[in-house]
Amino acid sequence: MQYFKNIIFIFIFLNSFQALSKNNFNIHPIEVSKNIYVFMGDNNDVNPKNGGAISNTAFIIGTKSILVIDAGPSYLYGSKVIEIIKSYSSLPIRYLVVTHHHPDHSFGLSRFIENGTKIIMAQSEINRYVKYGNRLLKQLKNLIGEDWFIDTKIVAFENENIKFPINVNLGGREIIIELYDQGHSEGDLIVKDLLSKTIFVGDLVFNERAPTIPHANINNWNKYISTIMDSNWDYLVPGHGKLIKEKEELLLTKYWINYIDKIAKKAAKNGMSPAEIFNKGIPEPLLKYKLAKETWIRDLPLLINKYEFE
């Protein structure tokens, strides 16, 4: 009997140890400007090491309340972010802006609802999140393991017919939230902090890494990047990749989306198969982007199909 107890004990010990080591998000916020912090996402594809935390999450502290930008991939991630923010400030986390519906930005949001935080998200993106969320969640669990998604739920919620742009005051700092619809997604939100001249643009801008285009309208997206380049900011926080200080760095996102768009249109016009284009290798100017091959191969057939058959 004693042996039996020991076995059980060892089993529990090992399992709990694994669970802990496996689910731990090792994230630390970096300070962009006074009272503005960013958790940098792992600049990789979703994998069992990063637990899906591949995009950037940020928070802004005012004198009265706190605003968070993007919820991360899961309930556990959301919990970790809330826990860390509480160690920085005891003010209430009043707002969460979800820039768009992609799982790496939205799946942590139920944790914020529990926290009493108000969720700000474009209606089109709430619809997509609710409609596709459970299937995508299941796929993600298959991909990197159930454990990363313990307690992660897709919840329906109201946005009370928000008409963008909206202004939010966190106490001592004014925040503007703008909608850029039918660009990178059906409804991307941009957050501007006027005090520090910091702009949070979600996946309208990717830094270093190849932008993903499955829900994109390339024309609009292109215009939006120009608009962002022309607006007044000192710091730009992209959806993925490092902080940006020079507006020329936005040209990288532009270059990729225009390049892939041009190739896809040409292929659709000539009836080419993606297999024939892939056979030529990744175009040289795209090789400098992180995840170039994966993104090229994943997105090009989708775009060709869109231009050829829709």
């Binding site: 979703v46 596709y132 796929q139 298959n142 991909l143 499955p214 994943r298 989708l302």
Partner: peptide, 24 residues
């Protein structure tokens, strides 16, 4: 596994039997 990749999210079943023919 279901053809609904989390990255591309193309999982919406379309209308069955719609045919498009293209000639080049």
């Amino acid at each position: 596994t279901p053809a609904c990749d989390p990255a591309i999210e193309v999982c919406e079943p379309g209308i069955v039997g719609k045919i498009a023919v293209k000639e080049y």
